[in-house]
């Protein structure tokens, strides 16, 4: 008598014992969704801050400075910023780690590729998630070097916080056409990432149980993608066109 749960003589998988919800691929997806939503919240706030540039030099710098003292005296100076940075870093690690693991599983799930494969039913954004994610990751690294840690002013060649003036750094950066281009490409990727990602997170959270809910969430995702990617793009375009200087 062969093992009752396998086809005799084969090496096919047996049944899983003692399964835990937290160890399933869906748990990974849930982490992915939640960390992704944290980023959505962050970029919305970030975008609001960026748009302050339209209020002029002083208002923008004041906003930037205020972030450092937000929460004082309950929090130490820069406390809020560091909490944010910690939270974002954690979300990033979770998001990337889950993405890597799910990608690894997906690759393994199809060891032999099709000779011909169509992608009926898929929006292009959904198929850009992994490359888009990688692009965004590289962009974030450069972005942090550019504006946060290195404070690289590509126009003047200066680094560090010599001027202590975020507004000027912003304007100097986007006066360079190729910096704006990099930024805009990244924002297009962000838009695409959000277009699929927001919908996907809602689906993963199980909030799209009907055709109507699905349609609604897809509209919201698209709108959010446009608003966020568009909102971020306004400032560099304004700088490049001289609307902000």
């Amino acid at each position: 008598m062969a093992n009752p749960v396998t086809t005799p003589g084969s090496k096919r998988p047996t049944l899983v014992d003692g399964a835990r919800a937290s160890r399933t691929s869906i748990a990974l997806k849930l982490l992915m969704a939640l960390s992704g939503l944290a980023f959505v919240g962050f970029v919305l706030g970030h975008m609001y801050g960026n748009l302050k540039a339209f209020s002029g030099h002083d208002a923008f710098n004041e906003y930037a400075y205020h972030l450092k003292e937000l929460g004082e005296p309950m929090l130490p100076h820069m406390g809020f910023i560091w909490i944010m940075r910690g939270g974002l870093l954690l979300a990033l690690i979770i998001h990337v780690a889950c993405a890597i693991e799910l990608t690894r599983r997906a690759r393994k799930a199809r060891p032999v590729q099709y000779v011909v494969k169509k992608h009926t039913g898929a929006i292009p954004a959904s198929r850009l998630m992994r490359w888009g994610g990688l692009t965004l990751f590289l962009f974030i690294v450069w972005h942090l070097v550019n504006f946060t840690f290195g404070k690289v002013n590509v126009e003047t060649g200066e680094t560090g916080d010599a001027a202590g003036d975020p507004y000027n750094l912003l304007v100097d950066t986007f006066d360079v056409w190729w910096m704006t281009l990099i930024y805009l490409v990244a924002m297009a990727m962000l838009g695409a990432h959000l277009h699929h990602g927001v919908w996907s997170s809602m689906q993963t959270l199980g909030l799209t149980g009907t055709a109507e809910a699905r349609a609604r969430v897809k509209t919201i995702s698209f709108a959010l993608a446009i608003v966020i990617a568009g909102g971020f793009s306004l400032v560099p375009i304004a700088v490049l066109t001289g609307l902000i200087d």
């Binding site: 008598m1 062969a2 009752p4 749960v5 086809t7 005799p8 049944l15």
Partner: peptide, 11 residues
């Protein structure tokens, strides 16, 4: 029943 081990299936 396959899971419970009483039935073995031969497809």
């Amino acid at each position: 029943q396959v899971k419970l081990g009483t039935v073995t299936e031969y497809t």
